[in-house]
């Protein structure tokens, strides 16, 4: 039995969402033992774990569908995380950007958390039961994440001249990567038509309003620059992803299937 085109779409979609979560989770995990103070260090670790947990759930879903289709090569979550190369990863580029300073991480996290508030709310309605279940679980966590990101944005944006400058620089550097998060290719359009995938266009305006509100409240300015970068969903990445994967996959590739 072969995987039908519809199932193939669903597998790809689950992998994409898994990639977004895994790569961002990995970036956040880089703060562990480097946080500005102990509690914040722990908070970053908590949030990184939530994202990596989501990646596991999305990849496991992809593997389950693959395996149910009776394919010869049985797959697991680990195959997707550890044995794919850069061009096969389909995460949005914003997730792979280096962690930068704490302002940079905060701005990225604000953008992604507020996006996820809407994204997961919509994914709860997915006709695919397991995607909906993952969204129900993750949305609860995101309500905590987004509150924290807003607090930090206020604190740093409305803080010292130095913290404000760093926040503004981060915002100017990252903004061009947000547009890609609202673009959908044919694959996602097919899944939207089937009621499986989230139609980001529906919440773009609401998300922009939320971002604008918190940014102006923090004394920062939304960039006017028109540049934008895209390509993540097609497997075209910045130079950063390769570096992440070498670190992320090193142990598994050196000692395949090793167990603790």
């Amino acid at each position: 039995m072969n995987v039908s085109a519809e199932q193939q779409d669903l597998i790809q979609y689950a992998i994409r969402l898994g990639d977004d979560s895994l790569i961002l989770g990995h970036r956040l995990s880089e703060w562990v033992s480097n946080g500005p103070f102990l509690e914040e260090d722990i908070a970053q670790g908590n949030i990184a774990l939530d994202y990596i947990g989501r990646a596991r759930m999305y990849y496991s879903l992809a593997a389950d569908i693959h395996n149910q289709c009776g394919e010869m090569n049985v797959k697991s979550e680990d195959d997707y995380a550890y044995l794919r190369d850069e061009r096969q990863y389909q995460n949005h580029l914003i997730n792979e950007l280096p962690r930068g300073d704490f302002a940079y991480t905060t701005v990225r996290q604000l953008i992604v958390d507020l996006y996820n508030v809407y994204y997961l709310e919509a994914l709860k309605q997915s006709s695919e039961a397991q995607l909906s279940a993952i969204a129900h679980k993750a949305a609860k966590e995101t309500s905590y994440h987004s509150r924290r990101s807003k607090q930090w944005t206020l604190r740093l944006g409305d803080g010292t001249a130095e913290s404000k400058l760093r926040m503004q620089n981060a915002l100017d550097d990252i903004w061009g990567y947000t547009h890609e998060m609202f673009e959908q290719d044919e694959l996602e359009q097919r899944l939207i038509d089937r009621g499986v995938a989230v139609d980001c266009a529906r919440f773009k305006q609401a998300w922009e309003q939320d971002i604008t509100a918190i940014i102006s409240q923090s004394g920062l300015k939304l960039p006017e620059a028109q540049w934008s970068v895209r390509g993540g969903r097609e497997g075209y990445h910045t130079e950063n992803l390769g570096h992440i994967l070498t670190e992320l996959q090193f142990v598994h590739r050196s000692i395949p299937d090793a167990r603790w």
Partner: peptide
């Protein structure tokens, strides 16, 4: 002290 404690399920 912190919304995120020693594990995700706890605050400090």
């Amino acid at each position: 002290i912190s919304e995120f404690g020693s594990t995700s399920c706890k605050a400090l």
